[in-house]
Amino acid sequence: MNHRYRNPLSVARGLGSSKDGLGHWWKQRLTSVALVPLVLWFVVSMIALAGQDRAHVLNWLHSPLHAVVFSLFLIVSLYHANLGLRKIYEDYVQVRWLQLSSRIATDFAAVLLGFAGVFALLRQAFGG
């Protein structure tokens, strides 16, 4: 690597023009791998629940196993979606403040959806 054009601090950090390291890429792969079995489970479950009445759906959600795996699916897929959307903003939203506010709005939306979904699932599984 030619160091002439980079200051020593930049070289020490090891981050290029992306101002980011391997973290984002690695998290995206890890969530992808986790989603392979989770998506399979989700598709099979949705086939079983499609067209069923509310009592059937609530009864299905009453199983802690279903609630826990569904929660995992929700959290991992929202996290994965958040990582993907961040890349899309970086690629297509050139205006810095708009890129940052899109990213923050997506972060908030993902956390809100995750908490709302998981709370509903756990309440149905464990409470009344």
Partner: peptide, 21 residues
């Protein structure tokens, strides 16, 4: 499809909430 699924997660959570609510 990634963007579509991100938006679709709103529908999934809405469906879940509607069943429990």
């Amino acid at each position: 499809t990634g963007i579509a699924l991100s938006i679709g997660s709103l529908l999934l959570v809405a469906w879940l909430e509607s069943a429990v609510y």
